[in-house]
Amino acid sequence: MTDRTATRDDGSDRADRGDRDDRGEVETHVYLCTGCPLGCRLEVDAVDDDVLEVRGFACRRGERYGRQEHVDPRRPVATTVWIEGAVDRRAPVRTAEPVPRDLVRDVVASLRGVRLEAPVRRGDLVVADVCDTGIDVIVTRDLERIGRP
C-alpha cells in the first residue's frame, strides 16, 4: 500500500489529530509481523519514511518490526553456486547480513556465474560488497575435495 491515495483505514481519526505536515500526508500501511505465530496485523502511520505510530502489535517486538519493515525492509539471502571437485555440485552461500529487500533478486542473479573450487570452508568469502551493498557473500558449508569417480 504505497500509493499516495491508498487505504487509510480510519481517516477521520487522523484528521482530528491534525496529522498534516508540509512534507506530505499521513498514510497507514499494513504489515504482518513475522516475529511469532500470532502474526499480528500491524498498522504503521507514516509520512513517507517518518513513522508516527505503529498499532496492532501484541508485544514490543512487533512495534520495532513495523518500523523497520516500513523504513528499511531487509532480508537474509541464501542461494547456491557451482562448485568443482566436491561431493555435491552446488555450494550453499549467504549474505553475511540481511540486504535491502528490493535487492534480493539482484544479489541472487549476480551470483549466477560464480564457480568455486573445493575445498571450501564455512565463512569463506565468495563475493565482497555484493551489488554495492557493502555486504559480503560467504560459504555456509565445509566441502572437501574428493576425487570424482
Binding site: 537474509p76 541464501a78 542461494t79 547456491t80 550453499p92 549467504r94 564455512r122 555456509t140 558449508r141 565445509d142
Partner: peptide, 21 residues
C-alpha cells in the same frame, strides 16, 4: 540452505548447513 535455524540452540539465526557444521 536458508536461514532460520539455531535461534534456540545458539542464540542466533544461521542456515541449515551452518547449523549442521
Amino acid at each position: 540452505i536458508h536461514s532460520g535455524f539455531g535461534l534456540h540452540a545458539f542464540g542466533e539465526e544461521v542456515t541449515g548447513p551452518e547449523y549442521a557444521g
